[in-house]
């Protein structure tokens, strides 16, 4: 613990200090909350209007408000994290300060983790600042504090996962622009690309199997695990479990339950999904640290 404080904290402190001095964080928090507030208040306005018409409170709409706000929050995190982390290492390289840092007592892993923690802090600021809008739903009930804690837990895992991918690209690329582009492409891949890969696999199976033989869900089951790294599915699973009463996830499926399955609505899936994303985060952090280690650098 002491080692963590003395080695990682200097980087974390410097990053947090310099980023908080710019207007960037203020603008991000303001825009984020403005949109959240607009979504939340408009939904609330609709609920109040509907209850005036029908004479009762549509609880499903209240929960829908929670889902809407939380989903936007998750999407915003997916969108903003690459922007926060893609320049973390390449920026040091562009400023020509990376070598000086590497000459200090700090290890490459300390630098990577310190920078990632700073990004995590920004994500926490966003999450905490969104609490007032998220708790609008408390007016009528339906969502517990535990639900919010689980939501924040999932958002933290997503931040770490996407942040570690972006940090890895930042460590690999010389230019921040390139690292940013690749980071956003990675976000698109994990959210959309994983699904497309499964569609492709399913089509390949269909082409390869003899006429009349149907590809079953069991055939696709191992491939479906690819969606464990898809944060969009993680959040869909979370919201489905939290608000309950939704139709099966397979309703979404254009391929008769082969890709999206009911398994994705279970707590096990949520846990496995978070565990897989955390494990990959650790791997990406290690790879980023390996990449910036001067002793592994190609000269």
């Amino acid at each position: 613990m002491m080692r963590f404080v003395s080695h990682v904290f200097p980087i974390y402190q410097k990053e947090t200090m310099t980023s908080s001095r710019t207007t960037r964080l203020t603008v991000i928090v303001m825009i984020f909350n403005l949109i959240l507030a607009l979504i939340g208040l408009l939904q609330l306005q609709l609920i109040v209007r509907d209850s005036g018409y029908y004479g009762d409170t549509p609880y499903a709409s209240l929960l829908q408000m929670y889902t809407l706000v939380a989903a936007f929050e998750a999407a915003f995190i997916l969108f903003i994290v690459p922007a926060l982390t893609a320049g973390s290492i390449s920026g040091e390289r562009e400023r020509q300060t990376l070598d000086i840092l590497l000459c200090t007592r700090l290890r490459p892993a300390d630098i990577v983790v310190g920078k990632l923690l700073s990004c995590l802090s920004t994500a926490f600021v966003l999450m905490l600042s969104s609490l007032p809008v998220l708790t609008l739903v408390y007016i009528y009930g339906g969502i517990s504090v535990w639900d919010l804690a689980v939501l924040f837990g999932c958002l933290t895992v997503t931040t770490l996962f996407i942040g570690s991918i972006s940090t890895l690209f930042s460590a690999l690329m010389k230019r921040t622009t390139m690292a940013t582009v690749l980071s956003y492409l990675s976000v698109i891949f994990v959210t959309v690309g994983t699904y497309l890969v499964l569609v492709m696999v399913l089509n390949i199976y269909n082409v390869l199997t003899p006429n009349g033989v149907v590809v079953t869900g069991e055939t696709m089951a191992p491939w479906n695990n690819l969606l464990l790294i898809n944060p969009a599915i993680t959040f869909y699973s979370l919201f489905s479990q939290q608000i309950g009463g939704t139709e099966s996830i397979s309703m979404l499926n254009w391929y008769n339950g082969y890709i999206f399955t009911d398994r994705m609505l279970t707590p096990d899936w949520l846990l496995l999904s978070c565990a897989a994303q955390l494990a990959l985060s650790v791997l990406f952090i290690w790879l980023a640290a390996y990449a910036i280690n001067p002793l592994h650098r190609k000269s």
Binding site: S6, K14, M17, T18, T22, T97, D99, I100, T104, L106
Partner: peptide, 23 residues
């Protein structure tokens, strides 16, 4: 090194404090 890399929005004291804390 031959080139002095600069961090934006950092004071001289903070710059040195940062590197001191790195040690």
């Amino acid at each position: 090194p031959d080139f002095f890399g600069v961090y934006d929005n950092v004071r001289v004291s903070e710059y040195l404090e940062f590197y001191a804390s790195a040690y």
